[in-house]
């Protein structure tokens, strides 16, 4: 809540001009007949997605060159709100001139981006994002029909939300691509959970095999793991979280410092690390003979610090507790 949220009913005001224009006059509305496809020397593909009872349904027509697999003509029909019609129209346009394999890579984000008037302002409010997700699904469906393969080979087929026919693959992709953090956002983006709500969590209208809260939690964990791995692989110490920083420091100490101290009958452990103004302070506690050794506060300390700065990052400072 803030000043901008005080006046309601602003749904339509958040549509871009492009959304508005394509709703009023969609360029690619209509259908492609067998006859037309034949004249183009193309194979006709007709894919349906959604249903009237879900609030959104779209039918995508492609005329595909059987040699090059290039989509020579695209058209759509849609039962849906203004943004669904505008998204379908943009989706059909984005398919044009691409090969089927290229078209499969078009996401709901591409459709939404293409509908923006300026690159920083979303074309539609968040709760309307689901309309472009449907455009993403129908392309997959069309491609699977063209290639004569199961849709599952192009995406996960497990349907999580029966009402809106949203699949596990779509939900996971949408969470990852848009960095979604709440079930409410997942519902806004995918429409999963917007109707009977059974798929949100156990205890709803009817039991499900898999629920949005579990998918969100697992997908976030997966994203976390991927990002940790990516960061540690990229080797940038600054981008690591505190625990990863600590682990990196401890690994270096174990490998490069402790054997040296141990040879003299001493040791150390890290009590804490703290980040301050771009520096990372490593608080250590000496043990064994190091605790009383006079050089532990001078030469040894200097050596430890130099080693950590060299092996890990120059921003490290070592402090004795």
């Amino acid at each position: 809540m803030a000043k901008k949220d005080l006046i309601g009913g602003a749904l339509w005001e958040q549509y871009s001009n492009k959304v508005s224009q394509r709703m009023d006059n969609p360029t690619y509305r209509g259908e492609i007949t067998n006859e037309e496809a034949r004249q183009l020397g193309a194979k006709l593909v007709v894919a349906d997605w959604g249903a009237e009872s879900c609030g959104d349904a779209v039918r995508l027509y492609w005329a595909v060159d059987p040699e090059t697999h290039v989509i020579k003509k695209a058209a759509f029909k849609s039962f849906g709100c203004g943004t669904a019609i505008a998204s379908s129209d943009m989706m059909a346009e984005l398919c044009l001139g691409k090969t089927v394999d290229e078209a499969v890579k078009i996401t709901n984000i591409d459709v939404e981006r293409a509908l923006r008037d300026s690159k920083d302002i979303p074309a539609v409010p968040p709760q309307k994002m689901h309309c472009s997700v449907m455009a993403y699904d129908v392309i997959k469906k069309a491609a699977s029909l063209y290639k004569g393969v199961e849709m599952s080979s192009l995406e996960q087929r497990d349907v999580v939300c029966e009402c809106a026919r949203v699949t596990l693959g779509t939900i996971k992709d949408v969470i990852k691509i848009n960095n979604l953090k709440t079930v409410e956002e997942v519902t806004q983006y995918t429409k999963a959970g917007a109707f009977c709500k059974s798929c949100i969590q156990p205890g709803g209208h009817e039991p499900r095999k898999i629920y949005l809260i579990d998918i969100l939690r697992d997908t976030r964990l997966e994203m976390e793991r991927e990002s940790i791995q990516k960061r540690s692989e990229s080797g940038s110490f600054k981008d690591l979280g505190l625990i990863q920083k600590l682990k990196t420091i401890e690994r270096t100490l174990e490998k490069n410092i402790k054997p040296m101290l141990l040879a003299d009958g001493g040791s150390l452990e890290v009590s804490d690390i703290q980040e301050e103004g771009g520096r990372v302070k490593v608080y250590i506690q000496y043990m064994g003979v190091c605790a009383t050794c006079p050089s532990a506060k001078t030469g040894t300390l200097f050596a430890i610090e130099q080693e950590l700065r060299k092996k890990i990052d120059p921003s490290l400072d070592v402090v004795i507790m």
């Binding site: 309601g8 749904l11 009023d24 609030g55 959104d56 849906g80 709100c81 669904a84 709760q127 689901h130 519902t187 806004q188 429409k191 917007a194 109707f195």
Partner: peptide
Amino acid sequence: KQGIAASTGSACASESLES
């Protein structure tokens, strides 16, 4: 667009997408 004001209970027109 044709100057006529009506309303809908459609889930699509609600802020929350709820029926």
